[in-house]
């Protein structure tokens, strides 16, 4: 970065494209050495949690790159969130370089370096702002593409079942209604929920997902009111709420404040209710052609 000399700071990061680009962008005015640990394209926090951004990897990278010939000092600056995987004292034992944990966010690095490598409380705290939550939405949606195709095909199959064994026209019209419901559920759990997260009631995420799901379900029922029967509307409401609640629970993985013990605790409570709502909803959906026939 810039024109580093023997006195320039040594910054360590992961070979995750966004971390690396963020560093280059933030540091365009600073002369520094950059040591990139091989985390197979995974970001610092995830890699630290999964053991690729580790004490051993840092020692290995230092030794490989022969840093001692490049710099006169013996200090590595690591992102603070790397501390989950890196034991600072053991790095020093392993390669002679002292580890200092820098700020959580790259954007605070210039200030950190200017202040003689001091980070204040704000620089050391993780945040979860509206912007940070909104940026996660496309990633979450991307991971749902494959399940959506499967759900669509399963939905068409379920919708076609009827007294005539299988009706292609019912599969099409009712399949589209069910698909719309699925999309509404995804919209509630994956788009709406992250945006309004701090204002949703409940601590547990499966509970936070219920309210958007119920609202989405009622809206969906209202929109299709002329085309679907009451049991079908109820089935859609249950299905959408279950989808929203499940996706909300899944969102725990993208937040920076949920503990694994807490997530397991809430999953043991949320999953039975999500499964019950799904089963009752889908049974209703399949039963409708049989009960509404003259």
């Amino acid at each position: 970065m810039g024109r580093p000399g023997p006195e320039s700071p040594l910054l360590v990061t992961a070979n995750y494209k966004l971390s690396f680009d963020a560093l280059r962008f933030q540091l365009d005015t600073i002369d520094a050495w950059l040591l990139v640990a091989d985390t197979r394209g995974v970001n610092v926090w995830c890699a630290a949690g999964k053991g690729t951004f580790s004490t051993e990897e840092i020692i290995h990278s230092v030794q490989q790159s022969q840093l001692q010939e490049l710099v006169s000092h013996r200090t590595l600056i690591l992102p603070q969130l790397g501390a989950t995987g890196v034991a600072a004292l053991e790095v020093t034992k392993g390669c002679g370089f002292k580890v200092q944990f820098g700020p959580v966010r790259t954007s605070d690095l210039p200030t950190f370096l200017r202040n003689n490598n001091q980070a204040d409380e704000a620089m050391r705290s993780v945040t979860f702002t509206l912007k940070e939550r909104a940026e996660l939405i496309p990633v979450e949606l991307y991971f749902l593409l494959q399940p959506l195709v499967i759900l669509f095909l399963a939905g068409v199959l379920l919708s076609g079942i009827g007294p005539t064994i299988f009706s292609a026209s019912a599969a099409w019209t009712r399949g589209l209604h069910l698909l719309s419901g699925t999309l509404v559920g995804i919209g509630c759990g994956t788009i709406l929920l992250p945006l309004i997260l701090p204002w949703l009631p409940g601590r547990q995420f499966w509970v936070k997902g219920l309210l958007p799901g119920l609202a989405g379900g009622i809206a969906c029922w209202g929109i299709f009111s002329g085309q679907i029967t009451t049991p079908e509307g109820l089935a859609l409401l249950l299905w959408i709420t279950a989808v929203s609640s499940y996706l909300a629970m899944n969102f725990t993985g993208s937040t920076p404040f949920t503990s694994p013990t807490g997530v397991e605790h809430e999953m043991r409570r949320g999953i039975p209710i999500q499964v019950a709502a799904t089963v009752i909803g889908l049974l209703l959906w399949v039963a409708v052609p049989f009960i509404s026939q003259p």
Partner: peptide, 25 residues
């Protein structure tokens, strides 16, 4: 959030936590 950074960086193992990622998937 049980990330385990404190326990990992405690020089005398005074902190204990069952670390992991808080992720339903």
């Amino acid at each position: 959030m049980e990330c385990g950074a404190c326990a990992k960086n405690c020089p005398v193992q005074a902190i204990s936590v069952n670390p992991g990622v808080g992720c339903a998937a």
